[in-house]
């Protein structure tokens, strides 16, 4: 009986681990999509604040940080703090540091990290005539990446869940 209980528990754990792995991979895809979507919304929000209201950048970043995902909030608050301190660093440096420090490895894939780092050109551009155009261009680029991430998530999420569960079952059969 004891041996049966142990085997049942083991089977359950292996199945749970497999499913968990599948869920984790699905979550990774979903988070990728959601973060990119948040950055798109951020750009739309910043366009209103900067182009329409002419809100100073540190204030606009803090207002944008008011809601949204924790990772994005951290990036925006980090950048706003450094802008306010006026240390003399360029905004490109400040923004790239914010993304590097607050978006840990794995949160964003390498292919998506670079366009997020490039957002600085839309927020702090010496060519104010082109500011609105840069914001729209960055938003359009990120929107494209967001759509790709969403499609990948919808296509692969179910597959990963099933693979995870199947992997667990396969391992159980192997061990049995």
């Amino acid at each position: 009986m004891v041996w049966l209980a142990v085997r049942t528990a083991g089977i359950f754990l292996i199945f749970a681990a497999g499913s968990f792995l599948g869920d984790a991979m699905e979550y990774g895809l979903k988070r990728q999509w959601l973060i990119l979507r948040e950055f798109c919304e951020l750009l739309r929000y910043m366009e209103r604040e900067m182009v329409v209201h002419h809100t100073p950048l540190d204030e606009a970043l803090r207002l944008a940080a008011g809601s949204g995902m924790r990772e994005i909030r951290e990036v925006l608050e980090y950048a706003a703090d450094r802008v306010e301190r006026q240390e003399g660093a360029s905004f490109q440096e400040i923004w790239e540091d914010a993304v590097t420090c607050c978006l840990k490895d794995g949160v964003l894939r390498a292919g998506n990290r670079e366009p997020v780092c490039d957002i600085w050109t839309a927020f702090c551009n010496q060519d104010t005539v082109m500011q609105k155009t840069m914001l729209e261009k960055q938003e359009s680029h990120l929107a494209g990446l967001c759509r790709d991430a969403e499609q990948e998530y919808r296509a692969k999420a179910g597959l990963y869940r099933r693979l995870g569960a199947a992997g667990g079952v396969f391992l159980i059969i192997l061990l049995l």
Partner: peptide, 11 residues
């Protein structure tokens, strides 16, 4: 220019 304008030249 960035420092002078508080990184907000557009303002």
């Amino acid at each position: 220019l960035e420092c002078i304008s508080g990184y907000s030249l557009y303002a």
